[in-house]
């Protein structure tokens, strides 16, 4: 599999930018062409955030279209539901079970849908639910949610584990490498209890 389209969706402030940076680095070390489209600015203030990563022999558009994502990496349940149409029918769908209420839900103007992950699994049985916040907490830092998510995703690609670890080492500050690799490994070795 040379051409890959990956979408990382979540809430501004969850560390999705570092995730896409690691993915871009992985693509470079595989010798592929790659484009990464990021979100900076206002949406980073707790808004819905989507990052696109496309790799292959030649990449034109940096944006992933509907039904095109080989991997939909979701940092939050509601965001998974928002972007689900972008996943390929047989794509990898990885959902962090964390819930963050958006302001319209907090103010009572909208309702947070129940059982999102079960609903997604009804249409996409391959979808995986990950308690990434709990795993990150057990690594000593809730900010490592992104590394847990990268770990789970890495497991579902045919890219060597070491390539991921080297990419993480190149993209985090030296003092945080150990904790981040630990979180990555816990994600990589995570098995969902069915």
């Amino acid at each position: 599999m040379i051409n890959r389209s990956i979408m990382i969706v979540g809430v501004g402030g969850q560390g999705t930018l570092l995730t896409s940076r690691v993915l871009g680095d992985v693509a470079v070390s595989l010798g592929l062409d790659v484009k990464v489209s990021e979100v900076h600015g206002m949406s980073q203030r707790g808004g819905s955030v989507v990052t696109y990563v496309k790799m292959g022999e030649v990449v034109y558009s940096p944006i992933v279209e509907k039904n095109e994502a080989d991997i939909l990496l979701c940092f939050e349940q509601l965001e998974a539901l928002r972007w689900i149409d972008y996943a390929k029918k047989d794509g990898s769908i990885i959902v962090n079970s964390q819930r963050i209420d958006p302001m319209p839900v907090i103010t009572g103007k909208a309702v947070y849908p129940e059982n999102i992950i079960d609903k997604i699994k009804a249409d996409y049985p391959q979808a995986i639910s990950v308690p990434a916040l709990d795993i990150a907490r057990s690594c000593g830092n809730i900010k490592a949610v992104n590394m847990v998510m990268i770990g789970v995703m890495a497991k579902h690609t045919d890219i060597d584990r070491d390539i991921w670890i080297k990419a993480i080492e190149r993209n985090v500050k030296p003092q945080f490498i150990e904790m981040n690799i630990k979180a990555f490994n816990m994600g990589y070795d995570f098995e969902e209890v069915k």
Binding site: V11, G12, G13, M42, S43, Q44, R45, G46, G47, S48, E65, K66, N67, L78, E79, L81, R82, I84, D85, K89, P102, M103, P104, V105, A110, V111, Y112, P113, I116, K119, I120, A122, D123, Y124
Partner: peptide, 20 residues
């Protein structure tokens, strides 16, 4: 137009940016 490949038709609340 891209076909819809699932039966998920939930209302998804918007998530506007907010003060941190």
């Amino acid at each position: 137009k891209e076909e819809k490949l699932n039966n998920l038709n939930e209302d998804v609340p918007a998530r506007p940016p907010v003060l941190c």
